[in-house]
């Protein structure tokens, strides 16, 4: 057989061998058989030198062409087999539950507080705070609540068994006094915080609960300003469809004082015309005098409401105690 013929035989054998390889190791073995140092194709190349000088270029060219062809085939086959080999052994079940990275939930009171604070902050209010343990002066006297006022009954207030018998603040309004005592007007604050009343826990009472209130003191602050801001905050917190009604009322530290009722689709669904939501009023001049502001120069308003109440309305919660039990099934709903 001529070299050419043998070349053709070996090439065909290699092509069939490479094509038929079932996996990568088989392919590599086949490669060794033909293109390895001891391979048949390599042996053929060694025979070139034995050829007549004039035959060499032609034979060499043919051998090179065949080699390139085989190498290309090898590369292609290798890629195919590699692809096959990298397939997952078992198919993924895309319907099986995913592995969740657990995400914790914030307490509903936190969420509501943050929403309300955000509404106030949009209007330029800064968060202020004060102690939960208060003295009678900041909680009552300075707020124009005289010592024989019913709100000061021991039934309503927790006292602390330490010298001076301080109390747990019954409202966040004590912070109004704390802030005005230490900062000159104008004042523009929002005060979220815990307050305490000596009530036994039931579906609508807990000895601990939360209030939030806004205070604005400046020159020329009016009742119209109060109404406008209350409306802006409650639209933000309760939705644009909320309607408000201001009813004259009595609080010792504001005058005129009002209670605020609201209504929206939810209230109608509850079968009511109005639901009471907040108290407000123009800061009483006596309060200004107490903190050393001149009521002839400064005027202001305050309004406050319960955070639990908003959360209960928003989420349809009917028992206030749920907030303080921290049942995971409760917390995970928000």
């Amino acid at each position: 057989m001529s070299l050419q013929d043998r070349l053709s035989t070996i090439r065909d054998a290699a092509v069939s061998e490479f094509t038929g390889a079932l996996d990568l190791p088989a392919l590599e073995r086949s490669k060794g058989l033909f293109l390895g140092p001891e391979g048949r194709f390599t042996a053929l190349m060694k025979e070139l030198s034995a050829l007549a000088r004039e035959e060499r270029p032609l034979a060499g060219k043919a051998i090179n062409a065949a080699k390139q062809e085989l190498e290309a085939l090898l590369a292609e086959k290798r890629a195919t087999l590699e692809r096959t080999a990298s397939l997952p052994k078992e198919a993924a079940d895309f319907t099986a539950p995913g592995r969740r990275r657990p995400l914790g939930r914030l307490h509903p009171l936190t969420l509501v507080t943050e929403d309300i604070v955000r509404a106030f902050r949009r209007l330029g209010f800064a968060v202020a705070d004060g102690p939960e343990i208060e003295d009678e002066y900041h909680c009552f006297d300075a707020l124009n609540t005289p010592s024989d006022h019913p709100a000061r009954d021991a039934q309503d207030t927790f006292f602390i068994e330490t010298p001076g018998r301080p109390l747990l603040r019954t409202h966040t309004s004590s912070v109004q006094i704390r802030v005005m005592e230490t900062m000159p007007p104008p004042i523009r604050i929002v005060v979220p915080g815990r307050v305490f009343r000596r009530d036994n826990a039931d579906a609508t009472h807990n000895p601990t609960f939360h209030q939030i209130e806004g205070l604005y003191v400046d020159k020329g602050v009016t009742l119209g300003d109060l109404k406008g801001t209350v409306e802006a905050v409650f639209k933000d917190v309760l939705g644009d469809d909320v309607k408000l009604r201001f009813r004259p009322h009595y609080f010792s530290y504001t005058e005129p004082s009002m209670e605020i009722d609201f209504t929206n689709a939810l209230v109608k669904k509850l079968g009511k015309d109005w639901l009471e939501i907040a108290g407000c009023g123009m800061v009483h001049p006596k309060v200004f005098e107490t903190v050393g502001y001149d009521p002839e120069v400064w005027s202001g308003w305050a309004f406050g409401f319960g955070i639990e109440r908003i959360a209960m309305l928003r989420y349809g919660i009917t028992d206030i105690r749920l907030f303080y039990e921290n049942d995971a099934r409760f917390l995970r709903q928000f």
Binding site: L103, G104, R105, H107, T110, N206, Y324, N326, A328, R332
Partner: peptide, 12 residues
Amino acid sequence: SGLGLDEAQGQT
């Protein structure tokens, strides 16, 4: 909460 903890609010 991002790390997977739920927030509690306890009694004072």
